[in-house]
């Protein structure tokens, strides 16, 4: 997690809040590193990065109307299928974490989100997650309802022009 070990392979897409308008990544997440997320080295624990990325992605799902309220009203929910975290720098207590998220892809049932996580404006990690829409009573995947699909398509369209970093969609250990 120290910088010389794994250099960021590309320039960050953008600093959170650096862009305005439709063609901007989703940047609502903002959170101080909490003491209970620290490991024995005094840095954000491996699983803490997953907590933060998950929370940042939950805000995106919320903006699409696909979070906790949706589950209560529709009996369906977005489930995480895969998560790929690349650790690029340590994060310490008190640093402010922000995230810049792009909806990279979607189909009738699935969403793929990519985030760059910053600690005090320094790129600290990237996270990619695949979600599937699940009908919780049937216990199986199901297509998104039309109104939610329209919101997903609108975000997909708005994010279409944003840059895709070269490591996106690559497996662990991929060399660029």
């Amino acid at each position: 997690m120290t910088q010389p070990v794994t250099q960021p392979m590309t320039q960050p897409m953008s600093e959170p809040g650096a862009l305005d308008g439709a063609a901007a990544p989703f940047t609502a997440y903002r959170q101080k590193v909490r003491p209970e997320w620290l490991d024995y080295n005094g840095h954000l624990h491996d699983a803490g990065y997953a907590v933060v990325l998950s929370a940042a992605h939950e805000l995106v799902l919320e903006s699409l109307g696909l979070s906790a309220d949706y589950r209560a009203s529709h009996g369906a929910s977005m489930f995480t299928v895969e998560t790929h975290v690349r650790y690029l720098a340590e994060c310490s207590a008190g640093q402010t974490l922000t995230a810049s998220t792009v909806l990279v892809d979607a189909d009738r049932k699935r969403l793929r989100l990519y985030s760059e996580l910053y600690a005090d404006h320094r790129l600290a990690a990237t996270g990619e997650s695949l979600y599937v829409h699940v009908d919780t009573s049937a216990g199986r995947s199901a297509p998104l309802p039309d109104d939610r699909r329209a919101r997903v398509d609108a975000m997909l369209h708005a994010h279409a022009g944003l840059p895709r970093p070269p490591h996106l969609g690559l497996g662990v250990g991929a060399r660029l």
């Binding site: 997690m1 120290t2 489930f79 995480t80 299928v81 998560t83 790929h84 975290v85 690349r86 662990v172």
Partner: peptide, 12 residues
Amino acid sequence: HSLYTSETHLHH
């Protein structure tokens, strides 16, 4: 010295 994680790919 220590071992640091550089990547994790989870499948749920």
